[in-house]
Nucleic acid binder design. Structure first.
Length: 123
DNA sequence: TTTCTTACA
DNA sequence: TGTAAGAA
């Protein structure tokens, strides 16, 4: 299928699909006319990319991870891949840091909010 | 009609 | 990311 079909089946824009390719996340075969040719496997890969992106992983990391994972129909199945475990733990650590920063931000707002309500009430 | 690349709001 | 331009 061509990029337009993949875009329709995944809900991801053509622009974004080309961007994913630039980032090394997709490897469509090129036809003689230069058109990108995708397969059903790519549809699954795009789903995985969206899942990992939503999980907070950078596209650069996803690019490497996709080589360590295969599709069993609808889930990501890890395959033997050197460094994958360590890499995932490292990313998890980054997420922990992000959560900590966000929690601190929320605390600041909670304090301000409580003070505002105490002194001026609601509305 | 659809896609390609490159570049810019 | 969207969109525009020019070509295939």
């Amino acid at each position: 299928m061509r990029i337009g079909d993949l875009a329709q089946e995944t809900g991801v824009s053509r622009r974004l699909l080309r961007y994913y390719e630039e980032q090394g996340l997709l490897r469509p075969v090129r036809q003689a006319n230069g058109y990108r040719e995708y397969t059903a496997a790519h549809v699954a890969v795009v789903r995985h990319i969206r899942t990992l992106l939503a999980a907070g992983l950078p596209t650069a990391v996803i690019g490497g991870l996709l080589h360590c994972v295969h599709d069993d129909g609808d889930r990501l199945v890890p395959s033997p891949c050197p460094g994958m475990i360590a890499g995932l733990r490292r990313e998890r650590g980054r997420l922990t840091e992000t959560i900590t920063r966000l929690q601190a931000s929320q605390d600041v707002l909670d304090t301000l909010l409580a003070a505002a309500i105490r002194e001026h009430g609601d509305l």
